[in-house]
Amino acid sequence: MITLTVNGQPRQIEAEADTPLLWVLRDELGLTGTRFGCGVAACGACTVHVDGVPMRACSLPVEALAGASVTTIEGLPASAGLAPEALHPVQQAWIDLQVPQCGYCQSGMIMAAAALLQANPKPSDPEIDAAITNLCRCGTYPRVRTAIRRLGGAA
């Protein structure tokens, strides 16, 4: 059995070793905020943080993660030292700018943006383009960019 830390809690995983983390999160642990969009690491809807690094959970076999620490959208505020029911600054910016449309891609967008800002607090536009490769069919990119710029201190 594989053990990993999910949102600060150690979890014993029953799924077979080759099961992608995405399905472990959704079907075994009931953490449905991490979403399935493509299954081939192309859309970013399943973005989580593995030891602080943004990764696409649909393409990570759980066996490769033994001992790792995984943060999902549900655990994002706590991972930043906030109360679990608080909003992470990225989530707050998303509300302030009314970013989501259908919202389906937004867990992944927020996880990717939070990781970007953690690593690079003032990203330039090309850096945003390079880091945020998540797909949004509703076309929220202009607002996602504005929100990240604002979090990076731009007016």
Binding site: T32, G33, L87, W94, I95, V99, P100, G103, Y104, I110
Partner: peptide, 18 residues
């Protein structure tokens, strides 16, 4: 402010797939 947005930024279970 739209009513649907807070749940969407929290990754709350919203959609049929959830």
């Amino acid at each position: 402010a739209r009513f649907d947005i807070p749940a969407k930024v929290k990754g709350a279970p919203l959609y049929a797939i959830d």
